[in-house]
């Protein structure tokens, strides 16, 4: 938090300055300096969650597997949406959403939960929500492995060109998720019931994002007809989910398994458009992340009186 390290050249010991307010460059420098702590916090989070065993890891996959199964059953079997390879479509969007939701859910109460630590040890406090995001990323990587297994099993090839764009999309997803996590963790210190509000908000947010239904079935085409297409992408999750779907589902127009009619699943943008939009999103996400750090800095000054 309120520390600042000035390197005094080779061999000199560092000087820590504790004062009322810490500027953004110093915050970033501190985060970088304490990256080993971040790594340790993530690994201890993962360890606690999976109890350090392979079985625990398997166990933790139960919840996402269950959601995937339910949505598949409801939308493909009962409601007969006719999307071919619906599991792949669903999984490639759900994986994005799972990362966001896991990270935000855990982070929201992380500072309150770790009050004992916050009151006893000095470290940049934003490391706590960042570690929760990190643990969610580890979990996400495991799900990615499962997704790849699905692709292999179903003989479903991804779009290899789009795959190169994925690091950019992931960086945007990470920064945006971290920004929300950081701000929510600090707000919860002041407003404890924000956690419940967030749960409701996340539900709404999920159904507004084109995860279980396709882009063509969303409100986006309607908005587009009125020249308001941009509004749909105010929700950064929309573009991220679409990019993942475009990469792994790898089809924009498919044939319905029911009617045999063509189904428009995803926007028919060129790879170039995807690249431009994702790079733009990454820049926005980076700015939002920095803003989140500034907001956190303003809020952390009174943590000790609220915890």
């Amino acid at each position: 938090m309120s520390e600042e390290s000035l390197s005094l050249g080779a061999g000199a010991t560092s000087v820590r300055v504790v004062s009322a307010r810490v500027g953004l460059p110093t915050r970033l420098a501190n985060l970088w300096r304490r990256r080993e702590l971040l790594r340790n916090l993530i690994s201890s989070d993962v360890q606690i969650k999976y109890k350090g065993s392979a079985l625990g890891l398997l166990w933790s996959m139960l919840a996402p597997a269950f959601t995937l199964g339910i949505y598949y059953l409801v939308f493909s079997v009962f409601l007969k949406n006719g999307y071919p390879n619906y599991v792949i479509f669903l999984f490639s969007g759900l994986i994005v959403w799972n990362l966001f939701q896991n990270a935000v859910n855990v982070s929201t109460s992380i500072i309150v939960d770790r009050a004992g630590l916050v009151k006893k040890v000095s470290f940049p406090r934003e490391i706590l929500p960042l570690a929760s995001v990190g643990a969610a990323v580890v979990f996400w990587l495991i799900q990615m492995v499962v997704l790849v297994l699905f692709l292999v099993i179903f003989h479903h090839a991804p779009d290899w060109g789009m795959l190169l764009l994925l690091p950019v999309t992931f960086a945007a997803l990470y920064l945006f998720t971290a920004a929300v996590a950081i701000v929510m963790s600090a707000l919860t210190v002041y407003l404890r019931d924000i956690k419940h509000l967030m749960e409701v908000l996340l539900q709404l947010w999920f159904w507004l994002s084109p995860v279980v239904y396709s882009y063509s079935n969303s409100i986006a085409p309607a908005l587009h007809r009125h020249g308001l297409a941009a509004i749909y992408f105010i929700n950064p999750m929309s573009l991220i989910v679409l990019t993942f779907q475009r990469t792994f589902y790898n089809a924009t127009t498919v044939t319905s398994t029911l009617s045999g009619q063509p189904l428009h699943m995803l926007p028919t943008w060129s790879v170039g458009t995807f690249v431009a939009l994702n790079v733009g999103l990454l820049i926005v996400a980076a700015v939002v992340f920095l803003l989140a750090l500034v907001v956190f800095g303003r809020l952390e000054g009174n943590f000790e009186s609220e915890l």
Partner: peptide, 16 residues
């Protein structure tokens, strides 16, 4: 001094 709390005003410098 440890940096667990931020002073409202004033500065603490600690070396090492």
């Amino acid at each position: 001094v440890c940096g667990v709390l931020q002073p409202t005003s004033g500065v603490i410098r600690q070396r090492g």
